[in-house]
């Protein structure tokens, strides 16, 4: 074996290298935030948040280009995510209740295993699936708010289900037994006692799913498609933020590029905000129950 000095030196090299890994990983995050704040911050204004997208303009400096905004697209994203949540939250929470309260070790575990697997499926595959389904049976509304929100809902359901399950599991058994001890049936105990005491955590899980869905672009390219007007009807294509970032970001138009950064900054602020709120709520919650 090497001498203690050499071994100690090795130890410090390892500490330094692993610490360097952390620093290297943080560089892209810092770069993304910096670029979005510098380039996106310059276009932010009330007008930007409310006006419709401008016509494309290829003057490189951007001087004299029409100035527009992303108002309708924010509305489109809200509409899609809202519709998707209306579908996904009830289904997800019920699945969570099933796996945590009724499923037992066999079926319940199998269901939560496959919800876990589903969270890893690529969103584009879900887009293709919804597209394929509708093109066969309802070709008229393949590109519509309906298909877009169904695709987003399929992405959200496993996330809602898993976080609901975890939050319900964190409720102590004594709470359930107290409810049963009062002689009320199990389902009412779950609805009136167990679920309310887990509600903040369940709601946070739904919020995390909203975060994930709100940033998705790939499935929307095949379902909600896009327009410049945002949400104009359930059976019409919907313009929303992420696909527009893709469209504007890969265009050569200088004002579109600037707007794409503005839209990115807004998405980042929303996502990081949701993520931080979720973190705070979940941590306090599980701590209150003496660790999950």
């Amino acid at each position: 074996m090497a001498s203690p000095t050499v071994r100690r030196a090795f130890n410090w090299v390892a500490v330094a290298l692993t610490c360097a890994c952390v620093v290297v990983i943080l560089i892209p995050l810092a770069s993304i935030l910096y670029t979005a704040i510098v380039l996106g911050g310059s276009v932010l204004s009330l007008h930007f948040l409310t006006a419709g997208p401008p016509a494309a303009c290829t003057i490189p400096s951007g001087v004299g280009c029409p100035v527009g905004g992303i108002g309708p697209l924010i509305g489109g994203t809200l509409a899609l995510v809202g519709l998707a949540s209306a579908l996904a939250v009830p289904i997800g929470v019920l699945t969570g209740i099933f796996t945590s309260e009724y499923g037992g070790r066999g079926l319940g575990r199998a269901v939560s295993f496959f919800t876990d697997v589903m969270t890893g499926l690529p969103s584009i595959v879900i887009g293709v699936f919804v597209y394929g389904l509708f093109v066969l049976y309802y070709p008229r509304i393949v590109f519509s708010a309906i298909t877009g929100s169904i695709a987003l809902a399929i992405i959200m359901i496993p996330i809602v289900a898993r976080t609901s399950e975890e939050s319900l599991r964190a409720v102590p058994h004594s709470v359930r037994e107290a409810a049963l001890g009062l002689g009320i049936p199990k389902y009412r105990g779950i609805l009136r006692v167990v679920l309310p005491s887990a509600l903040p955590a369940v709601a946070t899980g739904a919020l995390l799913a909203v975060m994930r869905a709100g940033g998705e672009a790939a499935p929307l390219l095949l379902t909600a498609f896009g327009n410049r007007l945002g949400f104009v009807g359930l059976d019409q294509p919907v313009g929303s933020l992420p696909p527009t970032i893709y469209e504007f970001g890969t265009s050569g138009a200088s004002n579109w590029l600037a707007d794409a950064w503005g839209a990115s900054l807004i998405l980042i602020i929303l996502m990081l905000g949701i993520s931080i709120v979720a973190r705070l709520v979940l941590r306090n919650r599980f701590r209150a129950f003496g660790g999950g």
Binding site: V22, I25, L26, P28, L29, S31, I32, T35, A36, L39, M211, G214, G215, E216, A217, A218, P242, P243, I245, Y246, G249, T250, L257, A260, W261, S264, L267, I268, M271, L272, I274, S275
Partner: peptide
């Protein structure tokens, strides 16, 4: 903070990559 990277939408990653 490292896990915050997971909260950035993938289209923003792409745009950052491009720019």
């Amino acid at each position: 903070v490292i896990e915050l990277l997971a909260a950035v939408p993938s289209v923003v990653f792409g745009f950052w990559g491009l720019a």
